[in-house]
């Protein structure tokens, strides 16, 4: 591993001033499950690694009338088992549970999963369909942006030098909403997605789709939403044909690549299949949420 100096600021404030001073020369350490691997492989060579000692304000979950706030340093395991997430954001819980291994989930943080900006980041698709926003702090102040705009390319998140992600805000989905997450891999454990899909649907009283959101992972340079497919669904009565049509539009919107896990062609085909399945699944869940 290349040499670096470990800095351990007491709190977020101190960390921000350190990071703004060091800029590109420093990297922030959260769970370390991606960062340490990248350091060891020499993919990144920062002079400093910054670890915040007090995680106050960066951890935990708070629920309010508008939705849920997840501290960026909440671990993936915490996200997977949190009662409010399991109940109201089950697709997110499921995605968190599908990630890596228990030991990695114990260390890895949701903030780290997003900031690493992998196209296959497991928590990204469910958060995207929930219209999540991210809180970002820098020495100059704080800002909030939609998660959709946060991913800029493989490994590239919309963070300026010196900025950190502090929290993820997920609005309350309300009633009549169903969400689903499906991940396709060859093996069941320890798998990185060939394709992952999250879907959120709101079911109208007349059986029409009031709201539709579809997000996919591992099929484009970033996790992405597919507006054309979503538009196709909105305001239409739900049917299997409609789901198949929307799925076709989703498949033509993705830009997958060939890699060690699968071919681009297969990924594109699977984007369609998984979207279709997730739509059916989400629609059924939405029905349950109407009655309940």
């Amino acid at each position: 591993m290349p040499k670096f100096e470990l800095l351990e600021p007491a709190d977020t404030r101190e960390a921000l001033s350190l990071l703004s001073e060091l800029g590109e020369r420093a990297r922030l350490l959260a769970g370390g499950t991606d960062l340490m691997v990248n350091l060891r492989r020499g993919r990144i060579r920062p002079e400093y690694v910054v670890r915040i000692l007090s995680k106050e304000g960066l951890q935990g979950f708070s629920t309010g009338s508008t939705g849920l706030r997840i501290g960026a340093m909440a671990t993936i395991r915490e996200v997977a088992v949190h009662p409010a997430i399991k109940e109201r954001f089950p697709a997110l819980a499921r995605a968190a549970l599908s990630m890596a291994t228990p030991q990695v989930r114990n260390r890895a943080t949701i903030g780290g999963n997003l900031c690493n900006a992998s196209p296959a980041a497991d928590t990204a698709p469910p958060l995207l369909v929930h219209d999540a926003e991210v809180d970002i702090s820098g020495a100059a102040g704080s800002r909030t942006m939609p998660l959709r705009d946060f991913f800029q390319g493989p490994g590239a998140a919309a963070l300026q030098a010196g900025e950190i992600l502090t929290a993820i805000r997920v609005p309350d989905p309300g009633t009549g909403v169903g969400a689903a997450f499906i991940k396709l891999g060859v093996r069941k454990a320890q798998e990185i997605a060939i394709v992952s899909v999250a879907v959120l649907l709101r079911r109208g009283a007349a059986g029409q789709v009031d709201e539709a959101r579809i997000a996919l992972g591992a099929v484009a340079p970033t996790p992405l939403r597919v507006p054309a497919a979503e538009d196709e669904l909105r305001s239409r009565p739900f049917s299997l044909e409609l789901a198949a049509r929307a799925a076709g539009l989703a498949a033509s919107a993705v830009e997958p690549i060939d890699d060690v896990r699968a071919t681009a062609e297969y990924r594109r085909a699977m984007a369609g299949v998984l979207v279709e399945r997730a739509l059916v699944d989400a629609w059924e869940k939405a029905a349950e949420n109407c009655e309940g």
Binding site: V186, R187, K188, A189, Q190, E191, I192, V260
Partner: peptide, 10 residues
């Protein structure tokens, strides 16, 4: 992980 040997699940 990349060799994709079967685990007990597969």
């Amino acid at each position: 992980r990349k060799m994709k040997m079967p685990s007990a699940l597969e």
